[in-house]
Amino acid sequence: MRNLITSAALVVASLFGMAAQATADEAKAPYVELTNPVPVSAPGKIEVVELFWYGCPHCYAFEPVINPWVEKLPKDVNFVRIPAMFGGPWDAHGQMFLTLEAMGVEHQVHAAVFNAIQKEHKKLTDKNDMADFLATQGVDKDKFLATFDSFAVKGQIVKAKELAKKYEITGVPTMIVNGKYRFDIGSAGGAEQALQLADQLIAKERATTKAVAN
């Protein structure tokens, strides 16, 4: 009887140890799986979101790493940049980004805006200063100012803030894969590792989609 009790105790201890190890492994995962997945902007494609801020030096350092990766993404992956807007200059820069995006010129001046803020130490928090700088980059000043305060851009601001809340982000740069998985450079172990993790999660989502289809 004593041996049976001892054996049972060992089994329970072993199972408890395995459960504890599983919990520990989950805690060490380089990403967080969102409790409430967020719908993607382009149904039928695997979405990768980067939340960023023009005033963030880490986001700036990530640019030469993530941009070549984005250019090589397969057709079934949709990459989206969303400005994190936590108030003050975050909101100003976010509204500038969304304005340029609405005008269809964001991709042409994105690097120039980053350089102006990070290397030339321009604040670019006043819309008139933004317009003056962007005019030197070929952006129509009057059109920019009109679009900046437009109803469409204000709607995009609300949407960006709502998404940041749903993603439960606390800093930038942060990446979200298919509205389900959130991670940052720190949790991934570095910039290159973050993109490798994104590739792994993209492959995971692609395999899941195929399995459901079959």
Rank of each mutant, 00 (worst) to 15 (best):
V139D: 00
I202V: 14
D142H: 04
V77W: 02
L163V: 04
N67T: 15
A203G: 12
D184Y: 08
A198I: 03
G171H: 08
K127Y: 12
E101H: 08
I169S: 09
V109E: 03
K180D: 11
Q156P: 00
L134T: 03
E162T: 15
N128Y: 14
F79H: 03
K154F: 13
H107M: 12
D91N: 13
D149R: 08
F183A: 04
L124I: 02
S150N: 06
E162G: 04
Y167S: 07
E192M: 10
F86I: 11
V158K: 13
E168D: 15
E101T: 06
G186E: 14
Q95I: 10
N178M: 10
A111D: 10
L145T: 06
A84W: 03
K119R: 13
H110C: 07
E101L: 10
K127S: 13
L195E: 07
L197T: 06
N115W: 10
L201Y: 12
Q156W: 09
A112K: 14
I176G: 02
H121V: 15
D149Y: 07
P89M: 13
A84Y: 07
Y181V: 03
H121Q: 15
I202C: 08
A102D: 07
Q193A: 14
G104N: 11
G179W: 05
D199P: 08
P74Y: 10
K161C: 11
E101V: 00
L134D: 01
S150C: 09
G87A: 06
D132L: 04
E120C: 09
M103R: 03
Q200W: 12
P89A: 15
T136V: 09
D126M: 02
P173G: 09
Q118K: 08
A112C: 10
A164H: 04
P68H: 14
Q193E: 13
V113F: 04
W90M: 07
A188V: 04
T125E: 14
E205K: 07
H93M: 01
L124W: 00
S150D: 03
L98F: 04
F133N: 00
A116P: 01
D184P: 01
V77Y: 07
K141Y: 05
K180C: 15
Q137Y: 06
G190T: 07
S187V: 11
D126C: 00
G190W: 06
L195T: 11
R206P: 02
W69Y: 13
V109W: 01
